[in-house]
Write a protein that binds this DNA or RNA. Structure first.
Ligand SMILES: [Mn+2]
Ligand SMILES: [Mn+2]
Ligand SMILES: [Mn+2]
Ligand SMILES: [Mn+2]
Lengths: 216, 216
DNA sequence: TTATATTTTTAGACAAGCCTAAAAAATTTA
DNA sequence: TAAATTTTTTAGGCTTGTCTAAAAATATAA
């Protein structure tokens, strides 16, 4: 249906669209670690295929078709991540690169059967919602720890940074999906956040607090 | 490690090497549904990478390295086929094309975990042996039904033709892996073979008998 | 053993996807 | 508003993997 490169561009544009309506050439280049001139080439091709809305110098947005394709790729990615963690017992910091390849396996029948095999999971190992076979999913109503008031209590439910090093750090601290925490104090000097978890205190940096999401 | 195209060429050369020591350019072209000139281009590249032994006009054979790579791709292909049939309940005639894509997922750790998850199966859904993580596997000691004597008794254990139409035909006749049959008679007029299975007689054509393998 | 047919390779071209360098457009700063 | 900076596009080129057409090598037949 679509080439691997096209799929990766659509996914990148989708991801960037969540932050700002219109996505710029340079943003896409940064996201895909490629050059702006390469992006321009691909944008023309995606526009020809009616997958994006594109006028020169004006940035891009996904068409309805383009968005459907992008959501489907995300569905595949997150289902494979779930498979790798739940069935093959990989750790949550080990699965992203493998899923980057697996998301391009083209059969939708395969993905639907995989979904059924695993019991139609709704969240991937990082807390991100898994679109169903019609592309529907609940939008995450999560807040960064750095964005809630002191004495707020919540459940760790997602991350903003998916890097191995961040995920490994969280694992080590026991800050994993599903854990219940209370924000106890924000130290004014450097915005270090003091948390309580299992009746024990824990300090995390501003950076970590920015990238760790809780459901209230 | 290797490109998708390189992997497909190595697999094709491996497959053809089972029939004849030296593999010709045209044989590879036919196997991959490509042109002889494209094959020549690729052969030079594979020779440069020391994956094949190649002298112009002399045909090719795999080096030890090349064979290792080829066997590994076959291992991946067959493990994914097993997964698709045993875990996702696809039929044996539906899995080949999907496995053609999945065999190129590069992580060996993934394949080893998949192998473990499924209990280290030794045969794929078509009866072909699955190499273990060191590349070892039992060579099939099977005979085509057309090649055994009347009154021979055996277990259906493999196929030579992997096409959907052939596999669907076998399924319909109940001629599936593991079934016990006896060769009752070969009709001299057109070499139709009369089988007995579950105390019932069944006639198959010469063509079918050529492509259906039994263990004695 | 020479002529013919087949197989294989070479030559040249093309699409996809990427690059660098330069030009054009848009934005920011003065 | 004009100049400087940044962003985006264009121009031209490279690699991979493919193709067709023609040349070269090998195999077969007379
Ligand atoms: Mn991921
Ligand atoms: Mn994820
Ligand atoms: Mn197969
Ligand atoms: Mn098979």
């Amino acid at each position: 249906m679509h080439t691997l490169a096209e799929e990766n561009y659509l996914k990148a544009i989708y991801k960037l669209s969540l932050i700002a309506e219109n996505v710029s050439t340079n943003q896409i280049a940064a996201e895909l670690a490629t050059k702006a001139s390469s992006v321009t080439d691909m944008l023309r091709k995606l526009a020809d295929k009616l997958l994006i809305n594109y006028t020169r110098y004006q940035g891009v947005s996904l068409t309805q078709t383009g968005e459907k394709v992008a959501v489907n790729i995300i569905r595949r990615h997150r289902l494979w991540e779930y498979f790798l963690v739940e069935k093959l017992h990989f750790k949550w910091d080990e699965v992203h690169e493998m899923a980057e390849e697996m998301e391009h396996i083209s059969s939708n029948e395969l993905i639907d059967r995989l979904d059924e095999f695993m019991g139609f999971p709704t969240r991937d190992p990082h807390g991100d919602p898994i679109p169903d076979c019609n592309g529907n999913f609940k939008t995450n109503d999560l807040k960064a720890i750095s964005a809630v008031d002191v004495n707020t209590c919540g459940i760790i439910s997602g991350v903003r940074d998916h890097s191995s090093s961040f995920l490994q750090y969280l694992e080590k601290q026991g800050l994993t999906i599903g854990k219940k925490i209370t924000i106890k104090e924000i130290i004014t000097y450097d915005n270090t956040v003091v948390l309580q978890m299992n009746n024990k205190d824990l300090q995390i940096s501003r950076d970590v607090a920015n990238n760790l999401l809780i459901a209230l």
